[in-house]
């Protein structure tokens, strides 16, 4: 930190601390002496372990974010919420149909969504959660996949839903149905697997395996390279 670093006042579970400006909620907790076990995973905005709530001194409205990404602000009140288990159905993906009715059959509670949009407001990834819920109800699985794709499954939507729904699990099932049943097949992938199973490359790879370091490096140096774009 340079000399001009500003100091920010924050409150961790009620107690006042002063921390240098520019820390994230996570690093501010550590700066104040907290050693995290729960609520900390990738530390980079991908795993959803660090979902957190906070509010500001004169603003009682609860706000939501990822502790590893959100910068601390003056007069922030912080509390860590542990990740809690949410209802997940078990199913055999091989036996499902890629339809909205199917998702509803696995998770019948979805019908209880009354469109309050609290989930959307809670999403730290700014996904349109309520809209993908309605896409499920309309049976538009590709749209659910599309709108929910960047979901890190942090659980904040479920934590906030007044109906006790778990949107991120419904989206996960929908995406799996899309990937498995609805995405167009890759013929070249299947062809290649067939070729490998027919041992088409074995003789050549055997030859390469026998090369010494010098030979293989020479091969590498002189290989032709496809244009990147």
């Amino acid at each position: 930190m340079t000399e001009q670093t500003k100091i920010v006042d924050i409150y961790i579970m009620g107690k006042h601390y002063q921390v240098p400006e520019g820390l994230t909620i996570m690093t501010a907790l550590e700066y104040c002496g907290y050693r995290l076990v729960r609520g900390c995973g990738c530390r980079a905005g991908f795993c959803g372990a660090c979902a957190t709530v906070y509010n500001l001194k004169d603003d009682p409205q609860l706000k939501f974010d990822l502790a590893c990404q959100k910068t601390v602000e003056q007069d922030m009140y912080l509390a860590q919420i542990p990740f809690f288990p949410a209802a997940k159905a078990t199913y055999d993906i091989e036996k499902l149909e890629p339809t909205g009715e199917q998702v509803l059959a696995v998770y019948p509670l979805i019908e209880k969504c009354f469109g309050c949009n609290t989930c959307t407001k809670a999403c730290p990834q700014e996904l349109e959660v309520m809209w993908y819920m309605s896409d499920i109800l309309r049976g538009d699985i590709p749209e659910v996949m599309n709108k929910s794709f960047d979901c890190v499954m942090c659980g904040l939507c479920a934590a906030r839903c007044p109906q006790g729904l778990v949107p991120y699990n419904y989206a996960l099932l929908s995406r799996r149905l899309y990937g498995k049943y609805l995405a167009p097949r890759s013929k070249h992938l299947e062809d290649r697997i067939a070729e490998i199973n027919a041992n088409k490359f074995d003789a050549d790879i055997e030859k390469l395996k026998k090369m010494d370091k010098k030979e293989i490096q020479k091969k590498y140096q002189t290989r032709d390279i496809e244009a990147a774009y």
Partner: peptide, 11 residues
Amino acid sequence: LGVCWDKNPDG
């Protein structure tokens, strides 16, 4: 298993 790979329209 349901992973959604990035694909071109022809699959």
